[in-house]
């Protein structure tokens, strides 16, 4: 593999892993505080899956692409060196926001990992088979809750619509294009952000319609970009400070 392609794959995997870690971290904040116990447990499971995905992706970086130890890489990096999207960074807010974020993000993940089933970089292709199987349950969960809440009365439907309006530009930011997209597409790694974005819209649109929600017109919405280039909301810095609080007491110690 040439150096340019190696760098491009590293960029892709890092942003996927950072998304999964940061959103998994956010979603884990609901553990013990969910709206009902059964949902508390489900949301916590999915948070664990996400953090597990991040860990597996960082290990691919370490084992195949000359990356750092996953703990050091995740717990010691500065915010500007993270490439997660803004959607993942925001605080959990209310359950409406968290659930809509889960719906939009997990469908984006499902589309991405589906495309990676044919990835020419074998470690990523192998991992994507396992992750795809887990995401199936995440999207089932999201779809069921979306319908339930949108059909459970006017208050909850309005809340979900407001959450969609707020989340959509952020979610479009998941697909922030980068200069490496063409190279990765040519090398058969994955089809690139624009192709995934189109596929994602086609997936979520009928589900939102079925839940009686109005998708904002994608042509009118400015996606919230910046995360892939290390430009973040202030929330990420605060999150990382908290996440690394103990680890940084002595990064060389075993914990």
């Amino acid at each position: 593999m040439n150096a340019a392609l190696q760098k491009a794959i590293t960029t892709l995997i890092t942003s996927m892993a950072d998304d999964a870690l940061i959103l998994g971290h956010r979603n884990s904040e609901w553990t013990g505080l969910g709206p009902i116990m059964e949902e508390d447990i489900a949301f916590s499971s999915m948070a664990q899956d996400k953090i597990g995905h991040a860990w597996a992706l960082y290990r691919i970086l370490q084992e195949h692409l000359g990356g750092e130890d996953p703990d050091q890489f995740a717990f010691m990096r500065a915010a500007k060196d993270f490439t997660c999207c803004h959607l993942a960074e925001l605080p959990i807010g209310g359950y409406d926001f968290s659930l809509m974020r889960h719906f939009l993000f997990d469908h984006a993940e499902a589309v991405r990992y589906e495309s990676l089933q044919q990835c020419s970089f074998e470690p990523l292709q192998q991992l994507s088979k396992k992750v795809k199987g887990e995401l199936k349950y995440h999207t089932l969960h999201a779809d069921a809750w979306l319908l339930q809440l949108c059909r459970g009365g006017e208050e909850s439907r309005q809340r979900m619509q407001a959450a969609l309006d707020r989340c959509f530009p952020l979610a479009a930011g998941i697909f922030e294009p980068g200069p490496q997209d063409a190279l990765l597409a040519d090398a058969g790694i994955y089809p690139g952000e624009q192709a995934l974005y189109d596929k994602w819209l086609n997936t979520i649109y009928p589900l939102l319609v079925n839940a009686s929600l109005n998708l904002p017109d994608p042509a009118e919405v400015a996606p919230q970009y910046g995360g892939r280039y290390g430009n973040h909301t202030p929330h990420l810095q605060a999150l990382l400070q908290e996440m690394g609080e103990v680890f940084r007491l002595d990064p060389t110690a075993g914990w």
Binding site: S28, T31, D40, A47, W55, D71, A74
Partner: peptide, 29 residues
């Protein structure tokens, strides 16, 4: 313990702690 989920040092401890606190909620249920 839940307040330490966001601060657990390293992947292993982080995942173990989330899973543990989740179990406790499951026990409650």
């Amino acid at each position: 313990e839940g307040t330490w989920i966001t601060r657990a040092p390293g992947f292993k401890r982080k995942l173990a702690l989330i899973a543990k606190v989740q179990d406790e909620i499951g026990h409650g249920q």
